[in-house]
Amino acid sequence: MEVRRVQKFGKSTLMVSLPADWVKEVSLNPGESIYLEVDEDGSLKVYPPNLRTESVPREMKVKISITTSPELMTRIIYSLYILGFDKITIETLNGPFSEDLLRKIKESVRSLIGLEIVSQDITSIQIQSFLDPTKYNIGSLVNRLTNTLKQMLHYLNLGIREASRTFLQEVVELEKEVDRLYYLSLRQLLLAQVNRSLAYMIGVKRIQIVGNRILMKAAEEAADEISEAANDLLSLHPEDLALLKMSWDKMDMLIDQTSVVIDHVVKVLNKEDIKLVNEALEELRTLRRVLLSDALLLEEKIQRMNAPKVATAIRTLNLRLYNAIRRMEPIAEIAFNRGIEGLKEVVIE
């Protein structure tokens, strides 16, 4: 770390010179403007006129056996994507790709935003990222992710009301979109951690990186619960699904309340108002109590159905909604903490 002495300039202005090597590296000329940012730890960040967000492309070569587990290969691709690698070359050591391995690699690439296979032969595949990280603001990614969550609940509701497998299948497809946004968000957060210029452009504060990762994971897990609820219903026989429709009025209210609470949690995350966040936390807890009490009330109706599979589906659906609500609580807690950290004093009127 270089140390420079602060000098007085005029009656009240303090001045420090810029390092010559840095000035040369960023091609800074006299008369140009620079950007100053006070970081969370009190340090001062200096940015050149053209913020440098690009870095040296990161490449990784992966050498595998043709007997390598397709699931392991999927995890490697996902991990390299999250870690910010721009080019991935996969080569086999002992023959051509197996059909299962090749299929899994292609599925993995298609499920990650910005990745494409740019070349391929029987023993080698080259994957490249065409993402421009400056185009994906973290706030907009959070909103897209939670809006997709609400869409999932909407189609789940329609699937029950119409006894429609098409609507239920749409819930499952939307969960894949949540996963794509989740992995992109993780990639952005890790890139922002090592590239402060990029972090500045996409709205990531250093102190909030961990919290952002937690809230993204919470939303992704809530989507998993809703998707599993749809899969549970898809496993029913059409006649049982039609029978479940008889309980739609009650399910409609619970699903609608779940969607409303999720919407409130996201809104208070943006406002960082501790009173509003506290109200959202109470809404979450109240809805969880309602789901538990309604589960008991549904038992009598379930007993009269004389349809074991439908009874199980109703119980499981209630539990899935309960779990989805639980997954949203960390997001509200993060919003509460952010509301506190921005205050100089706490005043409750």
Score class of each variant (00 low, 15 high):
173 E>F: 14
136 Y>H: 07
113 I>M: 06
187 R>G: 07
329 E>S: 03
89 T>I: 15
75 R>P: 07
230 A>Q: 05
143 N>Q: 11
150 K>G: 10
220 E>F: 10
124 S>A: 08
171 V>G: 02
189 L>F: 11
20 A>N: 08
31 G>P: 06
44 L>R: 01
189 L>S: 04
78 Y>L: 13
201 M>Q: 04
49 P>L: 13
287 L>E: 07
332 A>F: 09
167 F>R: 00
237 H>V: 09
299 E>M: 09
316 T>P: 00
13 T>S: 13
297 L>G: 03
319 L>W: 15
267 K>N: 10
158 L>W: 10
339 G>A: 10
132 D>A: 01
316 T>Q: 04
258 T>K: 02
291 L>T: 04
233 L>S: 05
284 L>I: 15
293 S>F: 15
58 R>A: 14
259 S>H: 09
134 T>R: 06
141 L>E: 04
8 K>I: 15
268 V>I: 10
1 M>A: 11
192 A>C: 09
133 P>I: 10
65 S>P: 03
80 L>H: 07
95 G>P: 05
10 G>H: 11
242 A>C: 06
320 R>F: 15
79 S>Q: 08
336 F>I: 06
177 E>M: 02
182 Y>H: 13
322 Y>H: 08
199 A>L: 06
298 L>G: 07
249 D>W: 13
28 L>M: 07
252 D>C: 05
294 D>Q: 06
242 A>P: 04
113 I>P: 00
101 L>A: 09
336 F>L: 11
191 L>N: 01
182 Y>P: 05
21 D>P: 04
90 I>M: 10
159 G>K: 03
53 T>Y: 13
323 N>Q: 08
227 S>K: 05
